[in-house]
Amino acid sequence: MIEVEAIAKRNGCVSVRVSTTEAERLAFWAGRKAAFPAIGRLSPDYLCMDGTIPRGRLPEVLTKMAELSEKHGMRVANVFHAGDGNLHPLIMYDAGIPGQLETAEEFGADILKLCVDVGGVLTGEHGVGIEKRDLMEYQFEQADLEQQQRLKCAFDEEGVLNPGKVFPKLCRCAELGRVHVHRGQTRFPDLPRF
């Protein structure tokens, strides 16, 4: 505790408050946990994003996010678990105004691509679902996604469980099982053959 305070002071903090009672500790956290409802008072609707970045890239990502905010003409507030690099940008929009949801979604996609660009990932804890499904190809190669879908085939060959989520393309298991025939030069001729 004392050590954290010293580190904070070295890094130029402007205030430090240590909780002295359990009630006070919960009150501090209540501030964090109420961040989402607080945004609700600033804007009629918001989209909550969930990318993760390497922690050291945070300042750069925040700067670029501000640029994206300007580009899309839409406000964004940041709530994050800085300890693990998990960002929750809240994009504020008004669903009552035609086109705003679409703009918010484009803005969100740009933020998540930014996370991937700096070595992070699309989702730290909310899951891919349908929200980030079409961005999966931005983070993963086709072979990566095919292997994930093959795992699904081991469990759900008919594709009846929650289809349309996570993966941008629906593949038939039979197609995924096909081997891409290899007719190249043999570089390891000492492999014994029949």
Binding site: I7, A8, G12, V16, R25, F28, G31, P59, A82
Partner: peptide, 21 residues
């Protein structure tokens, strides 16, 4: 369990503090 509420003037300073801690 204690909570520390630390205020920083800039995001960069806060980030550096997190990393060092």
């Amino acid at each position: 369990r204690r909570a520390l509420l630390i205020g920083f003037a800039s995001v960069e300073a806060a980030g550096a503090c997190v990393a060092e801690t």
